[in-house]
Design a protein around this nucleic acid. Structure first.
Length: 473
DNA sequence: TGAAATGTTGGGGCG
DNA sequence: ACGCCCCAACATTTC
């Protein structure tokens, strides 16, 4: 028996369509899995409390299915280079297999892991991130990255999406038993059990991801073009956290959507499938951009925005975080986020626009809150989403586009279902009162508006006028 | 993947 | 009958 292979797990917590695993398995000398929980200074890619909760349960699920196939998952915490090299040495591996992630520090991180392995005579093999196409495969005529979605989308759709690789039937046991931390040792769960709402809503893990996908493609996908913008209806796939943690491959989503919406032969399903795939390519766009411009995590793409007159007011930020802005659509969204670790995409845009434009808080503060509280906290999607909202990103909403939360409420929550679900203070009102332009009538517990819409809009326009320009990095 | 301000048009009330 | 005005409805421009 030769040296076993070590699969270093990251945002690829699945067994199906796992290129690194498949490459390790064909070696035939046994596979050992490793997950390394990073130290504080390397947690930007992971996010905060909500994604940690998800990670805990996802790792538990994966460990069980690995064990079922005769394999073993080792858990460690600490510096990636140190831990990967140490475990690889202990299990006598000669090669470590992993997938790249899209993150500000990935280049230097992988370099250090590779160096640590090579020092000990071992190799690192890095496979493509969980995307439909590699960033190198989608370039403009000048050989550079696209900075506008539509041309990116046109070019990316020309790139063949490989069919997913089946999960290996048997993993082959390791040569010897390895010591591992317990899942509890990673301390991923919150000290106070605030996560009850998350557990009621979500089933982390590869099987849960598969069920979500099937349930969506079995029905709601046909009405996706209309329902995707209505937060009171479950019209979206809600698969983002599964996809983020790599419990399902992007290529699986692509091929299942194509296969099943074409097989249904109903126009609605086909159109819905296409509209949904387009969203998958927005994710693709964000990841490719962050791959090419890792600085976007902190810096606006449009450099003139560095001079934007943000207000930095902790009180305003906290009112927004707690869902106490006095604007029902914003507050409903922020409370849905707090209770479920997720927010409907339409409402993300409304709530984000409100923080940045009505309250003039820096987009980075909103992005940080989302990274802490969203179970699908994804550095690329989140960063580009916030830059889009603030108007400082590539192909962003123009700076003068200010959402009117009342209008958005009337348009996308016409019956008030969504607001009443998340803002109990308003549950006795009808939709007309809830979304009235002047806001709901003053209520017992419901806060009065932090700012008045028309005035806040004018103030935002004035602030943006100061940085108006068109320069990019 | 907006909203508000401004411009245009056409129907109908009315002197 | 005619022209004038009002204003809703729609279109265009601007932020």
């Amino acid at each position: 028996m030769g040296a076993p292979s070590l699969v270093w797990l990251r945002l690829d917590l699945r067994l199906e369509d796992h290129a690194a695993l498949s490459a390790a398995v064909v070696r035939g000398d046994g596979v050992i899995f490793l997950f390394v929980f990073p130290p504080k200074e390397d947690q930007a890619w992971l996010g905060g409390a909500a994604p940690r909760w998800w990670l805990h349960h996802s790792l538990a699920e994966l460990a069980a299915s690995i064990a079922k196939r005769g394999g073993q998952l080792i858990l460690r915490r600490g510096d990636a280079a140190e831990q990967v090299a140490q475990v690889a040495r202990q299990c006598d591996a000669d090669t470590v297999y992993c997938h790249r992630i899209i993150d500000r520090d990935e280049e230097s991180r992988l370099s250090r892991v590779r160096a640590a392995l090579e020092d000990a005579g071992m190799r690192l093999r890095v496979f493509a991130p969980n995307l439909l196409a590699t960033p190198e495969a989608v370039m403009n005529r000048a050989g550079g990255p696209f900075k506008v979605f539509t041309p990116f989308h046109n070019a990316a759709r020309q790139v063949h999406v490989a069919g997913p690789i089946p999960a290996p039937a048997r993993l082959g046991g390791p040569g010897k038993a390895m010591t591992s931390l317990s899942l509890e040792d990673l301390e991923l769960l919150p000290r106070h059990n605030w996560a009850g709402g998350l557990g009621a809503r979500w089933t982390p893990g590869e099987a849960g991801a598969r069920r979500r996908l099937e349930a969506f493609l079995d029905g709601p996908v046909a009405r996706y073009p209309e329902d995707r913008d209505v937060p009171g209806v479950e019209g979206t796939a809600r698969i983002s956290p599964h996809l983020h943690f790599g419990e399902v491959g992007a290529r699986t989503l692509f091929h299942e959507a194509v296969r099943r919406t074409e097989a249904s032969r109903k126009g609605g399903a086909l159109q819905g499938g296409e509209a949904w795939l387009r969203q998958l390519y927005w994710r693709e766009f964000a990841h490719h951009l962050l791959f090419h411009f890792p600085r976007l995590v902190e810096e606006p793409m449009r450099v003139e925005f560095a001079a934007f007159p943000w207000r930095d007011d902790a009180g305003l930020l906290e009112a927004w975080q707690r869902g106490r802005t006095g604007y029902p659509m914003v507050d409903a969204g922020m409370r849905e986020l707090w209770h479920t670790g997720w927010m409907h995409n339409r409402v993300r845009m409304i709530a984000a626009s409100f923080l940045v434009k009505h309250l003039l808080q820096p987009w980075q503060a909103g992005a940080a809150w989302f990274m802490d509280t969203l179970v699908d906290a994804d550095l690329a999607n989140n960063t580009l989403g916030w830059q889009w909202t603030a108007g400082c990103g590539p192909d962003a909403a123009p700076y003068f586009r200010v959402f009117n939360p009342s209008l958005q409420g009337m348009r996308f929550d016409p019956d008030g279902i969504y607001v009443r679900r998340w803002v109990p203070e308003l549950s006795g009102l009808d939709a007309k009162q809830i979304h009235a332009p002047g806001g709901p009538p003053p209520g017992s517990d419901y806060p009065s508006p932090l700012v008045e819409h028309a005035g806040a809009r004018q103030r935002a326009l004035l602030a943006y006028a100061k940085v108006r320009g068109n320069k990019t990095i």
